[in-house]
């Protein structure tokens, strides 16, 4: 899952080197946390959350085969420092 999200996010941002994906495996749900350079946050979220929603839908489809529920979270500056 991490691989997939990392690949997509890196193809969307200007600073792929600053992309960090953290996968937290829970019992019933896998949480994928995405952090990117400040100026790239908008690119990963998209207009009206279009890109973020697309990422969630793709993650859901990828998890379905293994019956894993996936939650995709995009970390913003406040999350990192707060």
């Amino acid at each position: 899952m991490k691989d997939l999200i990392e690949y997509i996010v890196k193809s969307l941002v200007d600073k792929p080197d600053e992309v960090n994906i953290n996968e937290v495996l829970g019992e019933t749900v896998t949480v994928v946390e995405i952090s990117v350079a400040d100026e790239d946050v908008g690119k990963v979220i998209g207009k009206e959350g279009r890109i973020a929603n697309a990422l969630r839908t793709i993650a859901k489809a990828a998890g379905a085969k293994d019956k894993i529920r996936v939650s995709v979270e995009i970390l913003t500056k406040e999350d990192n420092h707060g």
Partner: peptide, 8 residues
């Protein structure tokens, strides 16, 4: 899912 793949 098709639409999402298309968007990215």
């Amino acid at each position: 899912t098709l639409t999402s793949l298309q968007i990215v």
